[in-house]
Design a binder for these strands. Sequence first.
DNA 1: ATGGCTCCCCTTGGGAGA
Length: 257
Amino acid sequence: MKIASYNINGINGRLALLLRWLKESNPDVVCLQELKCQDKDFPQSALLKAGYHSIFQGQKSWNGVAILAKQEIKETKRGLNGDPADEQSRYIEGFVFGMVIGCIYMPNGNPAPGPKFDYKLSWFKRFSSHAKKLLAFDLPVLLVGDFNVIPTELDTYKPEKYLANALFFPEIRKAYEKLLKQGFTDSIRKLYPDERIYTFYDYLRNAFDRDAGLRLDHLLLNQTVLQRLSAGGIDKHVRGWKKSSDHCPVWIVLRDE
DNA sequence: ATGGCTCCCCTTGGGAGA
């Protein structure tokens, strides 16, 4: 069972690239972020033709999250509780292959401090409180997506450059740590405890060629899923493809139960 | 300190991204 996360940065502008990667990587489940399209423009039939069912929460121009799977997905939640005025599409959750999968696109939060950072903090709190509820069920739970969090100094090419950045602010790193302590494991960091390993390369300043990256995309597993973790990695080469997103696909493999 | 790049939209310049 292969599960991936990919911030696609515009699904329609990169549909050909997405289909190419799906064919090559052959994941069973994919969490996508930054669709940048409305529901009516989501390429559902093209994906079905490629072998993937989907659930999605779109939005015009910005944000947008989707889950793809080789099996029909039962949608269990869209959006988070706690702020009825929040109209940003950043969370969708489904039940598939016997697992609960939450697909997230955390707010960026820059510039920090400021209203955008406040929104990030409050969104994170709402998300963590939902994550805690998920742990109460005796089910495999995965929280997958673009967290917009650089968890530690090992997750950025230049820590000192990010000290004043919302991705690396102490409050955000603490919130991430607290989320893990609730009962989740950062699967990629578990598999590569000491390596500088990145999932994002800025389009600017030739970041990819300089390996000036950040690790922002995470697959968090509860204890039940962690026991099945057998491999994982980052499809770094995809970032080098023409018309690539600024993020790389990240994936893990779980043993069958 | 700035800008470099790339996406999207009631587009031709601005907002957002990280």
